[in-house]
Amino acid sequence: MSATATPANGQDGDGIVLSARDIHKRFGDVEVLKGIDLDVGKGEVVALIGASGSGKTTFLRCVNMLEEYQAGIIRIGGVPIGYHDEGGRRVRLPESTVVRQRSEIGMVFQSFNLFPHLTARANIMLGLTKVRGKSKAEAGAIADRWLERVGLTDRKDHYPYQLSGGQQQRVAIARAVAMDPRLVLFDEVTSALDPELVGEVLTVMRDLAKSGMTMVVVSHEMLFVSSVAGRVVFMDGGRVAEQGSPSEILKNPKSERLRSFLGRFHGVLR
């Protein structure tokens, strides 16, 4: 696949799901995003890599409007989200609109964040009934289907505290994708897991990638990135420093920064 955002299975006309232009984000005096541009096509899997503090997670949180940002525009399916232009002024959209837009974007967190008072099945059903307005029966059927897909049918009535980290994260992924979002954001979803549990989560993600899910993945799992991502984006100091196919980025890094970053994964990548 080429370095540009070519949709992997772009049947519909435009094919661009996420388009971010010149995103600037400050925390107080510190500018953590210094003009991010990124396009993600339908069915594409884009991996964001970079040192901690490079702005990967912050960027994902801006896309999901969990953070406000000071400049730039993000479009989902061509529609600006979070902010709009009101006579030349940039204005935050009303909360009800933001809530609706957010439901089109799935997010999976590093720390799982399953609702602790609900079973695996009920965790998946909550958004389906309260946000999508589906009946309990319908939502239950969808939850069961996704639990089977992530291999947790026999754990559906377990509470989060009764599940391992890997199982919790698989439920969290099912909860996000069951909403049928246009895009799913994965924020270092294996970083909090014991090494022996990483594989089961990556397997689920690989399966989703294969089925044509549009995914933006922040990850330090370079083997996963090189085998699943269609495009790798290297972020450095709040900017997109380099991007391209996994082989271009991971095997032939152009910049010194990327070379030294990848040097840390020596042995994982050959």
């Binding site: 809530v99 799935g106 964040n113 609702f115 309260k130 909403m179």
Partner: peptide
Amino acid sequence: RYVESGMAIGLSGRQCFFFVTLP
């Protein structure tokens, strides 16, 4: 983070309060 994951699946602030925070 519990409230955040509620927001991430599209619950409104009020729904997050009643279906996540309160229980």
